[in-house]
Structure formats: structure tokens, C-alpha cells
Design a protein around this nucleic acid. Structure first.
Length: 616
RNA sequence: GCCCCGGUGGCUUAGCCGGCAAAGCGACGGUCUUGUAAACCGUAGAUCGCGGGUUCGAAUCCCGCCCGGGGCUCCA
């Protein structure tokens, strides 16, 4: 079957003469007119006769999809022989046309159909927007098991309280307010599962620019950001930390695979086909190849392992990759650094012998990611999605993980397996405006290894598919978003000290104190503290104001008094006080706070007078 | 993608029922030699998001597009 779908402002036709295959028609079919709506030119081909029911079903499905995209429920079905040279019989064609019409009517469409087998004149004015002219092809011989989705898979929701008690969730405000105490969890349920009130612009969107972290780039595509030196530093530190977890703590091997993939490769296609409209396409100069930008982390790795020789002795096999991925998200779905079209994903994949080894890996990863979330000081809720059978057998372990996090859990239990995983969870970060966004996730995949031919040799010498544990801490961009959002929840916003660009700023009271300021600065720098010096000619009040606006956690004032005492005066942001101490005390203070966390130098001149302003 | 709102020096904004584009911050130059969130004086800096239309005349009114925010949808 071939379909040509046109979103029209206006359409009308009138029959002119009979063809040999004309159906008998009433007067009302001889002439019709429609305003805004979807005009579907439809050609039934001989192939369709092999499975008329499927042809009807998938024809209607395609029309439904397109009409949803262009947001209309008005459809004109117009039999049109000229799209194919391999026409089906008159009987099949009419049967299919009527079937599609019926199917659409069942779904509340306002459907009209025009006469089959007549010469007609028609007039059409199409809307001309990108989705207004589409064509579809349906080949019943390629019928796939897509209908699986049609099977009713039911979801039940449970809430596991911090004390381990399990309640069945009613998704309404009253129930949640009565039973859920945890604020992050409440925010998650209202924002994601119930959907709530219009919210404000998340304050991080303004802050990311003002603090010279990240910014929009009009010369790129929406959702592709530029990062200023400070933002780049924060991203690098998060990446260092993610690598630390993956490689040093978890024992993963780091790899790199390409950003661009060949769409004609069956495994790439297989993984991406249902989302192809959301892929950036790449057109090389020879125009022969169809390439796509990497849209997920897995397939470069999967291909690598497909060609690898893996013994049971090598398992669990853990691989780490940090890479940009690209998804052409709908324009209206983009929001600051929360949802972008280009994002940096650190992925850990663990290839294991069987379900129980996979499940062990899962729990390890869960704990690592939980540690990370704690170090970034963000607010988050834990959500599990799990297949019923697996849940019943492993409830105790899920409760154990929740108690490791010291948090309640929201559990979606699926009656049957719907996706490739049997269990997954998400850490849902909560905005200062109470919105949610998915951060870390771990997924226990029982399907893909076989699908992509990733096997290992067992003790007995047999080939067997792996169980794969997919996981990611979540995109670096989104972490930055959440960390800034979290800062806005405080009375005095502050980034975690290990991530904050300037950890201590030294303010000389007058020019005479500048060399002392540098002396202190060097002492701090030697101990891996990111420090800068405000050597501008402004008065002290103004220097302090500037430092406070930059959320600098330690503002160090040095004047004649301090020079005489060989001390420093420290304004501590978090404690909101001012205290005289020795430089060594401050060093100890900051080193304590940033212990075990990655360190990088400040990628900016120490003297403020040497620095450009990237944003006014 | 659809619906609603917005875009004026680097930043924050005023002007918007048409009539010379304003102010503060910041930058730069000078004065002041400074003690915990904005010292003083001066200078430069604007194709009013882009394109078209209406008009003697458009930042202002109309149309199209781009960019941003909210909602819907979506998130492999």
C-alpha cells in the first residue's frame, strides 16, 4: 500500500466520469468539500491482498500517527491509483478503504472517503509546513511483531516508605499528600506522574549565563550549547568524577567509538529505526551514504564486542565510554541545560554471564551512582520500573538499595516485559521549581546481547548470550543544570566546593596589600585550591559585592591589620559569617570539604584585571 | 511539532494607541587610597532579533521567519 498524506487548508473534488472499475455510488459521494484536514491519497497494491487485515490496521496506524503530528482529526480518504504500478484488485481495494475508514472512525476521527474507480477533478491547498506533505509505504510481507505493543501491559504503582513498608499508590493529590512525606518524592510524583501547574522559568537558565558557565549559540542548532571556561571546568570535573567511578572504583576499561554511523548498517538501523525522525542526518559530499550522528552510547560498543572473543573467565566485562550523543528533540521540549539536542553521556556497560551476576552488578552500580548524587548535593527521588515476576523475587534487594540511599522509592510494576530490560531505576533530580529530570539510570538488559550477537564461551565450550547491565550517571549538561538548580534552593546559593570555579577569592584592601595577597594566594594554590585575586581599583564594598554575586564560597580580605597579624579575614558563604584565621586553617577547611573529589586548576588568570568578561 | 508569552548598547530595563532611541550597571579614561553587597567626574558603545508590508514617517501597526520561556506531546 502506498500513502501520500497532505495537510491541507482546503480540499474539494467532483467526479467527472466512470473508469472500468468504478464502484456504484450515491450522489453524496460525487462531490465533496473539506476545510482544514489531512488528505490521504491511497493506493492498494496486489501485495496487500496477502493480509488485508494487516493492511487495514497499518494503513490506519500510519494515518493516525501523521494526523497526530499535524494535530487534526479530519481525514479525507482518496483512492488514487497513480502511486503504484502494481495495483490490487477492486474488491481488495474497496475492502481496505472501508476498513481504514471504519478503523479511523472508531478512533473518533471525522473521516470522509471519495469514490473509488471514478475520474475526478480535485482542488487542494496544502499548508506547506514540513510535516504537511508525507508519503508512507506499507509492505504486508514485512509484517513485524510490532503488535507486541498492542498487547495490554499493565502498570501498577507502589510506594516503598523509608521503613520498608509497601503501599499501593493512588495517583491523586490527596493520596500523595497523605502518604508521601519525602519532599523530593512528592515533587517527582506531582511533576511526572500526575502533571501539575504551569511552572516558572527555572532560575538556572539565567544563572548559567550570568555565572559564565554555559550559553546559547544562535549560530548552531537550538539545544547545542557553548561552555565558557568556568562551565568547561565544571563539566571536566564531573567527567573526571564519572571516570573515577567507572575506571578506578568499578574497574571498567575505557574506549572510544565514532560519532558518525552508517544508517545502512542493519544493527544501527535496528536500534534507531523507531526514532529516526529524531536523528541528525549527515550528508557526505559523495551523497551516496546515509550517515547519522550518534544518538546513543551503545552501538559502537556493541559492534566492538560482537567481534570480540569473550570467555566466561573475562566476565563480568566492564566498559566505559564518555561521548557526545545527538538527538533532534522537538523544539518545544528543549529547556536550558535540562534537555538539549547535543549532550555528553558517560556510559558504563557490564557484560555478565547470567541474570544473577547481572543483578549483582546492577546493585553495585546503584550504590556508586548514589554516592555520586550525594557528592553533588542535589535533591533527587528514586524511581524503579520493574517487571512483575522479577519484582516479586527481588523485592528485598530493591528495598536494600533504597535503604542504602536512605530514601523512599516509587515503583512502577509492569505486568509483562515491554522493553529490553527486566528492571531499571532512575534518579530523578528535582528543580528549584519542583520540576523533575532523569539523571542516573541502570538497566538490566536480557534481550540485546542476543539481538546483537554478543556472546561468550561457557566452561563447556558453548556460545551463550550475555546479560547486559546498561548504566549512565546521566548527561553532564543535565547534572550542571541540576546542580545550579539545587543552589537556588538555598538562601545563599552555592555550588559544591569541589565544583565551584573560584574556591577562594582574595581581596586586598588597598594596593599596598597586593603583594601580601599574592603570597596568600600562592600558599593556597600550592595546596590545590582554586584561588584568584581581585586586584581591581574598586573599593572593598564593591569587590565583596562582586564576589558574592559569583557565589564564591570563601572571600578572603587582607589589609594592613591582617598583614600585621600574618592572618587572613574570611567571609564564609555557607555559614554566613566573617572570621579571622591563619591561611593554613582555610586550607585545611577547603581540603576537608573537597577530599577525595577530583581537582583541576582554575582555567582563568589569577588576577581579575587580566580576565575578559564573557557575559555582561 | 502544536498552543500561549517574550526579544531595545555587553547586562538589566524604559519607550510600544506612529514623530530626534532613554537610564542604571558594566567597559574605557581620570579623581579618590579605600575595611565587608553598588565612591565621584567624564568618554565610547544600538542595523530596536531577521526579512517584507502599511505610512510623508515604524522600536511602536500588519505578515512571514529566527531565537528564548511556559504548557501539551516526547525523552530509545
Amino acid at each position: 500500500m502506498k500513502l501520500l498524506l497532505l495537510h491541507a487548508n482546503h480540499f474539494k473534488y467532483e467526479v467527472t466520469d466512470k473508469t472500468p472499475v468504478a464502484e456504484d455510488i450515491d450522489n453524496d459521494l460525487k462531490k465533496k468539500e473539506m476545510g482544514e484536514g489531512l488528505v490521504v491519497f491511497l493506493t492498494v497494491e496486489s501485495n496487500d491482498e496477502l493480509d488485508i487485515d494487516y493492511a487495514i490496521e497499518s494503513g490506519a496506524k500510519n494515518i493516525k500517527e501523521v494526523s497526530k503530528k499535524v494535530n487534526t482529526k479530519k481525514v479525507m480518504l482518496y483512492p488514487y491509483a497513480h502511486l503504484s504500478s502494481d495495483l490490487g484488485s477492486k474488491e481488495a481495494a474497496i475492502k481496505i478503504l472501508d476498513g481504514v475508514e471504519n478503523e479511523l472512525e472508531k478512533n473518533d476521527f471525522d473521516v470522509e472517503r471519495s469514490a473509488f474507480g471514478w475520474y475526478k477533478s480535485f482542488e487542494i491547498e496544502t499548508k506547506g509546513h514540513p510535516l504537511s506533505e508525507l508519503s508512507r509505504e506499507i509492505d504486508v510481507s514485512e509484517k513485524e511483531e510490532e503488535e507486541e505493543e498492542e498487547r495490554e501491559i499493565e502498570s501498577d504503582f507502589y510506594y516503598i516508605k523509608p521503613n520498608g513498608e509497601e503501599l499501593e499508590v493512588e495517583l491523586n493529590e490527596k493520596w500523595v499528600n497523605k502518604n508521601v512525606q519525602d519532599e523530593a518524592m512528592k515533587s517527582y510524583i506531582f511533576s511526572e506522574e500526575i502533571k501539575g501547574q504551569p511552572s516558572e522559568e527555572p532560575p538556572s537558565i539565567d544563572s548559567m549565563r550570568r555565572l559564565e558557565i554555559a550559553d546559547y549559540e544562535e549560530a548552531s542548532d537550538p539545544g547545542n550549547f557553548k561552555f565558557y571556561p568556568k562551565g568547561n571546568l565544571i563539566a571536566n570535573l564531573l567527567e573526571d568524577w564519572s571516570k573515577e567511578i567507572a575506571v578506578n572504583r568499578f574497574g571498567a576499561m575505557e574506549i572510544e567509538t565514532p560519532l558518525i554511523y552508517d544508517w545502512s548498517q542493519p544493527d544501527i538501523r535496528e536500534q534507531g529505526k523507531s526514532f529516526h525522525e529524531r536523528h541528525y542526518r549527515v550528508f557526505p559530499p559523495d551523497k551516496e551514504k546515509k550517515l547519522v550522528l550518534r544518538f546513543a552510547g551503545d552501538f559502537g560498543l556493541f559492534r566492538m564486542l560482537k567481534n570480540s572473543i569473550i570467555s566466561y573467565k573475562n566476565l563480568p566485562l566492564r566498559i566505559y565510554e564518555l561521548s557526545k550523543s545527538f538527538r533532534y528533540e522537538n523544539r518545544g521540549e528543549l529547556t536550558g541545560l535540562k534537555r538539549t539536542r547535543a549532550f555528553t553521556m558517560p556510559d558504563i556497560h557490564s557484560f555478565t554471564k547470567n541474570l544473577s551476576e547481572g543483578w549483582k552488578e546492577y546493585q553495585k552500580l546503584y550504590k556508586e551512582y548514589d554516592d555520586l548524587a550525594k557528592e553533588t548535593e542535589i535533591e533527587y527521588a528514586v524511581v524503579f520500573r520493574v517487571v512483575e515476576e522479577f519484582y516479586e523475587e527481588n523485592k528485598d534487594k530493591i528495598k536494600e538499595m533504597l535503604s542504602y540511599s536512605n530514601k523512599p522509592g516509587f515503583i512502577e510494576v509492569l505486568s509483562e516485559r515491554k522493553h529490553y530490560w527486566v528492571v531499571k531505576h532512575e534518579f530523578q533530580g528535582i528543580d528549584s521549581t519542583k520540576g523533575n529530570s532523569q539523571l542516573s539510570t541502570v538497566q538490566l538488559d536480557v534481550e540485546d546481547a542476543e539481538r546483537y550477537g554478543i556472546t561468550y564461551t561457557t566452561k563447556k565450550g558453548e556460545e551463550q548470550g550475555c546479560i547486559i547491565c546498561h548504566s549512565s550517571i546521566g548527561s553532564i549538561e543535565r547534572w550542571i543544570y541540576e546542580i545550579i538548580e539545587n543552589a537556588h534552593r538555598m538562601k545563599k546559593p552555592k555550588l559544591p566546593t569541589w565544583l565551584t570555579p573560584t574556591q577562594a577569592r582574595i581581596l586586598p584592601v588597598s594596593e599596598q596589600n597586593e603583594s601580601y595577597a599574592e603570597e596568600i594566594g600562592n600558599k593556597l594554590k600550592e595546596k590545590q585550591i582554586r584561588v584568584d585575586i581581585d586586584d581591581s581599583e574598586k573599593n572593598l564594598g564593591k569587590k565583596i559585592r562582586k564576589a558574592e554575586k559569583e557565589w564564591i564560597p570563601y572571600i578572603v580580605v587582607v589589609g594592613d591589620r591582617e598583614e600585621k597579624n600574618n592572618s587572613i579575614n574570611v567571609r564564609r558563604r555557607e555559614k554566613d559569617d566573617e572570621i579571622e584565621m591563619k591561611a593554613e586553617e582555610l586550607i585545611e577547611n577547603i581540603n576537608d570539604e573537597t577530599q577525595n573529589m577530583p581537582y583541576r586548576e582554575l582555567p582563568l588568570p589569577t588576577l581579575l584585571s587580566k580576565r575578559p568578561k564573557f557575559v555582561g
